[in-house]
Amino acid sequence: MTLVVAALVLATPAYAGKPVGSGKGAETEQSGGGDGTGIYAAARITYSGSVAPSGGTGNVTSSDVNWAPSPCWYAPYLGAKDFKKKMSADIKKAASAPGMTGTPGAAIGQTKAHYEDEFGWEEHPGYKDYNVEKDGEGMFWAGVENPNEPDILKRNSCTELPFWVDNGEAPPPRYKRAITPEILAALAYQHMELPGTEVTLAPDGTTKVNLPTWAWLDKADFHEVRATAAIDVPGFALTATTTAKPVSLKLEPGTPDAETYPASGECTFNDDGSIGEPYAKGKADQTPACGIKYLRSSGDGTFDLQATITWEIAWTGTGGAGGRMPDGTNTNAQAITVQEIQAVNR
């Protein structure tokens, strides 16, 4: 028989922000506040760098539709004496927590016996008096749900009772979702806030049929963006930083009756970090390095020009860990009015 529990209590995070680059992004530091009020309040993860406020998800869309951060993870929770105090105060709350539903047998009694009287199951040895004789030598780890992932995933992924890990030791291999730098890097990715992608146009906002519209992004508006996730509790600390580097801009005119420059609509970054080339007087007869030519009028409405930046994303973490992550994108829509060129008959 396996007794399961997975729950999370988060306090409202505090954060402070300041502008980055052109002001189209925000650099913040934020973290969960307090130690929570529930018996399985989560070990706190802090976020810093260019991240969404209030613990929300950022504006990055993964290019891999099958990629997602972990729906839950196991993390250090409490030392032995504090864990005993929490459990003893409200053992009934433990048995009614998310993940306990459907547990066969006397859930409350078995949970109590597991931590007090060494009652256990296969691969789940019990504890004597909540392991208080080892207080200070390790911590109980508990399941933590990712609040930004679907309930059905997080409730069915971390279903183990809190377990003991000695200081300096790794959790047993059977706990596949024990917190790692890579899990932290994915959480930083999920919270990352990238600058907007509003391109500069010439003509700006209103253009003419068959007139090339130049598009460009200034190098000052786009640069590497970093987001960091960290966990730091007594005897245990991990950190990971996710870095996004802009690599290309894709223009989608909002109508099939248009041509893009280049034909693919994919404008790459120049050596100086800019995209395209600013329009200047005397270039009217030239083909823009990055731009659009509309072949019909937008009539009484507008076309929605979609500008999508692709970001190459990598991560580094504690112990020299690191690697690539799926490219990310973020998109901005701009309303474009396209008018017919008026001819005057004399």
Rank of each mutant, 00 (worst) to 15 (best):
A6Q: 03
A6G: 14
A7V: 09
A7Y: 09
L8M: 14
L8R: 09
L8N: 04
L8S: 03
L8K: 05
L10P: 02
A11G: 11
A11N: 15
T12H: 05
P13N: 14
P13W: 07
P13G: 14
A16W: 05
A16R: 13
G17I: 04
K18M: 07
G21C: 06
S22E: 10
S22Q: 08
G23C: 14
K24Q: 15
K24D: 10
E27I: 09
E27F: 00
T28N: 02
T28Q: 02
Q30M: 11
S31K: 14
S31Q: 15
G32T: 08
G33V: 11
G33L: 09
G34V: 07
G34H: 13
G34R: 09
D35I: 15
G36L: 10
G36R: 02
T37K: 12
G38Y: 11
G38E: 06
G38C: 10
I39Q: 01
Y40Q: 14
A41F: 04
A42P: 02
A43S: 15
R44V: 15
I45K: 08
T46M: 14
Y47I: 14
Y47W: 13
Y47R: 02
G49C: 05
G49H: 03
G49V: 07
V51P: 00
V51I: 15
A52R: 10
S54C: 10
G55K: 08
G55A: 03
G55E: 06
G56V: 06
G56P: 00
G56T: 15
G56L: 09
T57Q: 02
T57L: 07
G58R: 00
G58D: 01
G58M: 07
N59A: 08
N59V: 09
V60D: 00
V60P: 01
T61S: 12
T61C: 02
S62C: 08
S62E: 09
S62M: 06
S62R: 14
S63H: 06
S63G: 14
D64N: 08
D64T: 04
N66T: 06
N66Y: 07
N66S: 13
A68S: 05
P69F: 01
P69V: 11
P69H: 07
S70Q: 13
S70A: 12
P71K: 07
C72S: 14
C72H: 07
C72T: 13
C72Y: 01
W73Q: 06
W73A: 14
Y74K: 01
A75K: 03
A75T: 09
P76T: 11
P76R: 02
P76D: 13
G79K: 02
G79I: 02
G79N: 02
G79T: 06
A80H: 01
F83R: 00
F83K: 00
K84V: 03
K84G: 02
K86Q: 13
K86S: 06
K86W: 05
M87A: 13
A89Y: 10
A89P: 01
D90V: 09
D90G: 10
D90F: 02
I91D: 08
K92H: 05
K92R: 02
K93H: 12
A95Y: 01
S96R: 07
S96H: 04
A97Y: 10
A97C: 12
P98N: 04
G99F: 05
M100C: 12
G102E: 03
T103Y: 01
P104L: 13
